[in-house]
Nucleic acid binder design. Structure first.
Lengths: 350, 350
DNA sequence: CTGAAAGCGCTTACAG
DNA sequence: CTGAAAGCGCTTACAG
């Protein structure tokens, strides 16, 4: 392996000191035009690239944001990860991903210690809320006071720059079903809904809308899935068994809605004629379902932009040593997209 | 910010030298049991975590693998990224992702220089082949001889540990359609198929299977999409216009196949009765399409495992300074999954 | 505008 | 089995 060019090499070649080269690299103003040009020419000629590791160590700044996030198999985490990456790059940061492929087998605390060992300038905690996380965060992040923001979890004292409201779009979706004349509306919630804010909120929105309309919200109207299409299919079968008069379903994500559609097709249930259906997520595939799916699209771009910007500010403030007053949480509202699956007058497929 | 605990702190506290602590941390054998226990106890008590940046600088090893990959919006890159992450973690490496969100606007060379600045121990080049990449790789990686493997691109002198064969499953898919009695088979290829190996291979498999069966492969049987469902729908319309006698379609990914299905539903074309359909990818949603979609599933887990293992070996060998003989490329074969969309005898949905 | 010195927090030979 | 010294490749005060 050919010896790599270092700052020292450039300095020698240019006949200047190391920190003059450093100044040129970092675009500091206090270098004469002539010196800057001479040094820059040598840098370009040798294709020199400063060692980011050395720079991080001496500057005590890595320009890395650690991100802890659930498996990217699901649409939500995946979209968030991609947008975080875009936004972080735009802000000059690189992402250090710690993806939790399987929450049940992974040692989150160990995972987290390791992430911290890499000295990220800040950490984005994008994992869906679980009881035990709060303790881990407190122990490993909050106490050593490394800048931290959360995206899905509300922890006292930790900024949560933005939140995706789940209740409002759920109410809108259910109200829309009611306006279309559906009355006996069932719901298929996601996995761990009892333990996560997100699942609860969608259920909560359904409940509020139903009760406001004077409609029942009994336990037999609720089935639990695991976000997969297969579980949507099972949930549909379960609901029809325990709530046979059902005339519409709110599937808490589009994949489960697809399972419901599949069940309906196989059993000769016409959607939306016999059964109204709404989902959540707006998968790229959703407009191409048969019938196209009414659903809600979350503004992940804004969600991530606000989160990254806030963390970047926290990092800056932290370096200066000032006290930081976190901004109020920005509430973002998903957009409801009405498509044929929930519109009573919609013509059948054929 | 409370001063972080360093190795020096541990040494002072334990009354030993710094490198004795270093030995304990790195599990070197040459430490007495008594010393090791005493030091370890202090490490545990203070919750000390060695600074990975300092360690990387002095050891000249970051335990990072850089991965350059296209946008994770698509199923292929996404699956590859997730599996790479799993495999890299299992091998003791972390991933430094450089995601190319938009290939047309990004400065790949600059992107790459920056990745190199972070001193990854090796680089995985998982971008789909484009002409200009080869030059960039040669300039920035091959010359400074940093361990590098490719996944989608074949570059002379650069190991490509495994390859996902696209021709064979395409032949299998088309042969299956032929066996089912379909004869006038159209194909919707993906974006840039002229420029990427992958697109070409699926088209090539279609061509080979058709010609082997003595069936025509005219230009009017081919439409180009962009991998999206919308483009599949457009491709279907285009094919029916220029190839009206068509009785089956090979959509080169499942999303485009979904677009085809959507078109068929809206125009009263029965799949598989009037029109056979096969896709490629086996999206989690594919078994729940109406009808369930015949498609091919690629073994991304093996693909990534072999790639990561090879790179890890190359890194080890490179550190020792030995010459490395890259292994032969392992050819992996996607599995074809037959579902109702291509089975003539399959009963209609209702 | 420029440079000599110290230091970031570790590991790596080299001694003993 | 243990330690003193040097060094990884930069940046940061501090002088001048």
């Amino acid at each position: 392996m050919a010896k790599k060019t270092t700052l020292e090499d450039i300095a020698r070649e240019a006949g200047v000191s190391a920190q003059t080269v450093s100044r040129v690299i970092n675009n500091r103003p206090d270098v004469s035009r002539a010196t800057r040009q001479r040094v820059q020419a040598i840098i370009d000629r040798l294709g020199y690239q400063p060692n980011a590791v050395a720079r991080s160590l001496s500057a005590k700044r890595t320009w890395m944001m650690g991100v802890v996030i659930g498996s990217l198999d699901q649409f939500g985490p995946r979209s968030i990860f991609l947008e975080l990456d875009k936004q972080a790059f735009a802000a000059g940061y690189r992402l250090l991903p710690y993806i939790i492929h399987d929450e049940d087998t992974i040692d989150i605390a160990g995972y987290f210690r390791e992430l911290r060992a890499h000295q990220p300038d800040g950490i984005i905690w994008a994992v869906i809320e679980r009881e035990r996380h709060e303790e881990i965060l407190r122990q490993f992040v909050i106490e050593p006071s490394i800048p931290l923001v959360t995206m899905e979890t509300a922890i006292p004292g930790v900024p949560k720059p933005a939140v995706l409201d789940q209740v409002t779009p759920s109410i809108t979706l259910v109200n829309h079903l009611i306006e279309q004349g559906y009355r006996r509306i069932g719901i298929i919630v996601g996995l761990h809904s009892a333990a996560t804010k997100r699942g609860n909120q969608r259920l909560e929105g359904w409940r509020q809308a139903m009760q406001a309309a004077g409609l029942p919200t009994e336990a037999r109207q609720i089935a639990e899935g695991d976000w997969s299409a297969a579980s949507g299919e099972r949930g549909m079968a379960q609901l029809l068994a325990q709530f046979p008069e059902m005339d519409a379903v709110y599937a808490c994500n589009d994949q489960m809605a697809l399972g419901v559609l599949n069940y309906a097709h196989r059993h000769g249930i016409h959607v939306p004629g016999d059964m109204g259906l709404v989902g959540f997520d707006d998968l790229p595939e959703a407009p191409f379902f048969d019938p196209p799916l009414t659903t809600a699209r979350q503004p992940f771009d804004e969600f991530c932009a606000i989160t990254v910007q806030t963390l970047a500010t926290m990092i800056d403030v932290n370096l200066v040593g000032e006290a930081y007053t976190p901004p109020a949480t920005t509430i973002l509202y998903p957009e409801v997209l009405i498509r044929a699956s929930s519109v009573r007058g919609a013509s059948p497929a054929q």
